[in-house]
Write a protein that binds this DNA or RNA. Sequence first.
DNA 1: CATATTTGAAGCGTAGTGTAACAGCAGGAG
DNA 2: CTCCTGCTGTTACACTACGCTTCAAATATG
Lengths: 224, 224
Amino acid sequence: MTRILITDDEAKIREMIRKYAEFEGFEVDEAVDGMEAVSKCLSNQYDLVVMDIMMPNLDGFSASKEIRKADPSMPIILLSALGEEYDRIHGFDIGVDDYVVKPFSSKELMMRIHAILKRVHPETTEAQVYRLEGLEIDYSARIVRIDGEKIQLSPKEYDLLVYLVKNAGIALTREQILQTVWGYDFFGDDRTLDTHIKLLRKNLGDYSKYVVTLRGVGYRFEKD
Amino acid sequence: MTRILITDDEAKIREMIRKYAEFEGFEVDEAVDGMEAVSKCLSNQYDLVVMDIMMPNLDGFSASKEIRKADPSMPIILLSALGEEYDRIHGFDIGVDDYVVKPFSSKELMMRIHAILKRVHPETTEAQVYRLEGLEIDYSARIVRIDGEKIQLSPKEYDLLVYLVKNAGIALTREQILQTVWGYDFFGDDRTLDTHIKLLRKNLGDYSKYVVTLRGVGYRFEKD
DNA sequence: CATATTTGAAGCGTAGTGTAACAGCAGGAG
DNA sequence: CTCCTGCTGTTACACTACGCTTCAAATATG
């Protein structure tokens, strides 16, 4: 299990990242400031650290330095508000593995986490593929294959499928699906989800049988 | 895989070199001083050593001598601050293969590494070529051929192609591409990437089909 | 107890709308 | 001069909404 430490003084941000990171199958721990991040890194083993720059007690730059003292190869991703600390980031440059500018999309952050982990230990991260009989999802390439044949999914269809598959065997309410795949700010029509389920099923062909309707609740991806 | 040992007491410098060296496809190991470099050279097999002169415990000159005792043909590049030890480097003469004055550009260091490797074992360095059907990228010469025919790419187009190819089969977001190929300090227009993709595709001719658009995400170079 | 009816939810086709990618061109820097 | 960059219009595709149909479960009725 890949372990990630999320450091931000805003609980909202931590929650958002945690949600997506756990959804991606990571084990998540949290810290509220640089001080806590450093001490947690010393007493625990993480595979990657995500850290805000602006934090009370100890900022992201200083915390990074401390963490790197103990483990020079620890992968660190810094978060920064747009424009904030531009010069220091620029000068820092190589000190961290990556940095992401707020406001960032969760998808963007997750892709970067995957990219860095793949670079750091390519062996363990190689298994970025889900398989169920002839259905195959390559997460790093965003490719879905059916019996070896590549199929074309729209972004929403792909995200929807991934969300269902990552929660295979678990009943998901319509609200859960809409909130996660569409985002918190979606207040659209309820039929929208139906439509995308329909399109997804159409594209999945025979494998559409795994997308089970739970009347009055939502949907579930059958485990097998 | 070509293996390189980077030796510098400053983690920042090591990280910077590592980043570019790995981007060039080298396998990188690190040492923090001359002592560690020597012991690592005795227990590991490297193709080239990059080493700072000013280091605690054992300086670059002395470490070079020790390493050469064990392997007289080991390619070594020394790094020196401007003016520092000028005479000794000059007098050192044949002792090292090359030396680079700080502050140096990563591109320059990489070119020197390639040059020395090419000189030392021209056979293995020849394999710095990527091939996919009739598409051929010669990294050391920065030349791209299509069906044996050399094609002319602008610097940006070449860098872009190389980044895509090195991450073949992996979905890359626009932000990832912009940050890596253009650098962290590029906050320009999003359409710039479009334009370069367009130009690259135009130059790639039939092979442009491998540059796949991922709507709403970014691009991906098809593995095969 | 079996069948019919009701009711609300899910499925489906279509059409409109918005946005992302593409293309061409021009200005500007090295 | 070449190459990079940014602007503008165009295109194409994906998302959403709407309305109708189908389905399934619950309730009513014989």
